[in-house]
Computed example of a mutant assay.
Amino acid sequence: MARYRDAVCRLCRREGVKLFLKGNRCYKPSCAIEKKGTYPPGQHGKDSKRGKLTGYGEQLREKQKVKRIYGMLEGQFRNYFEKASRQRGIIGENLLILLERRLDNVVYRIGFATSRAHARQLVNHGHVLVNGRKIDIPSFQVKVGDIVSIKRESASNPHILQSFETAVGRGRPDWIEVGDRQVLSGRIVALPRREDITHQVNEQMIVELYSK
């Protein structure tokens, strides 16, 4: 499947906010936003007219931001929007909740990985179990009661252990009940709510963009 393979720090600078795409580096002074500021990358970045975006430009940037946070391609993101549109409730909130329920996001939120890209890799390589069964589909939708864990053969992986130990500093959501270092599992105790999503996004702009 096609994936963005260029420098991800450029994406944060393009959106003007931290998208936390680079794992622990995003929390250090070496973060590109900390070192170079929030102006866009490139030769003329400092001369950008970012603040003058209006209407369609603002809506597009908001959509791009959420796509990049969750590592989506345009077709995938559009499919999530259409699914959210068919559900009851507020479309924008439905969209964000569907994205939060992705298995790769849950693996990241539990703390098994330092970024969603790292979490996607763990899922693809078969390190993750859901209710004791290997699931290697990053887009798998978790539900209340599911237990997400690391398979026994991977439980001693130093990258997973280090990520799990530092996850407290990154924060864990209330809708996931996380075990200890010996267990390496998380149980979905509730569906995510809009207030559980800490990224600064305006989902209504995305709805307005796709509704045109």
Rank of each mutant, 00 (worst) to 15 (best):
R5I: 13
D6Y: 14
C9N: 05
R10P: 00
L11Y: 00
C12D: 05
R13T: 06
G16V: 09
V17H: 10
K18I: 03
L19M: 08
L19E: 01
F20L: 06
G23T: 04
N24V: 03
R25G: 02
Y27A: 01
Y27K: 09
P29L: 08
C31W: 08
C31V: 10
A32C: 02
I33T: 08
K35F: 10
Y39R: 15
G42T: 04
K46G: 08
K46N: 13
D47H: 15
G51W: 11
L53E: 12
Y56H: 14
E58A: 13
E58H: 15
Q59N: 11
L60Y: 06
Q64F: 05
K65C: 09
R68T: 11
R68I: 06
I69H: 02
M72P: 02
M72I: 03
E74F: 15
E74L: 14
Q76I: 13
Q76F: 08
Y80L: 09
F81N: 03
E82F: 12
S85Y: 14
R86W: 10
R86N: 15
Q87E: 15
L96C: 03
I97G: 07
I97R: 08
L98F: 05
L99W: 01
E100Q: 12
N105C: 13
V106A: 05
V107P: 00
G111I: 01
F112P: 00
A113K: 00
S115E: 02
S115Y: 03
S115D: 02
S115L: 08
R116T: 04
A117Q: 14
N124L: 14
N124I: 13
G126I: 15
G126R: 15
H127P: 00
V128S: 09
V130P: 07
N131R: 03
I135E: 14
I137T: 15
P138N: 12
S139Q: 15
D146C: 04
D146E: 01
S149L: 04
I150C: 01
R152G: 00
E153R: 14
S156C: 01
N157F: 00
H159Y: 02
L161V: 09
Q162G: 12
S163Y: 09
G169F: 15
R170I: 08
R170T: 07
R172P: 09
P173C: 06
W175N: 09
W175G: 10
W175I: 10
E177W: 05
V178Q: 05
D180M: 04
R181L: 09
R181H: 04
R181N: 02
Q182M: 08
Q182P: 00
V183I: 12
V183Q: 15
L184P: 00
L184M: 09
L184G: 01
L184F: 05
S185N: 07
G186S: 07
L191N: 15
P192L: 13
R193T: 13
R193W: 05
R193I: 07
R193A: 10
R194M: 11
E195S: 13
D196K: 03
I197P: 01
I197Q: 03
T198G: 02
H199K: 11
Q200H: 08
V201T: 06
N202G: 10
E203P: 06
E203K: 05
Q204E: 13
I206Q: 10
I206S: 06
I206E: 06
V207H: 03
E208W: 08
L209Q: 08
S211Y: 13
K212C: 06
K212Q: 09
K212E: 06
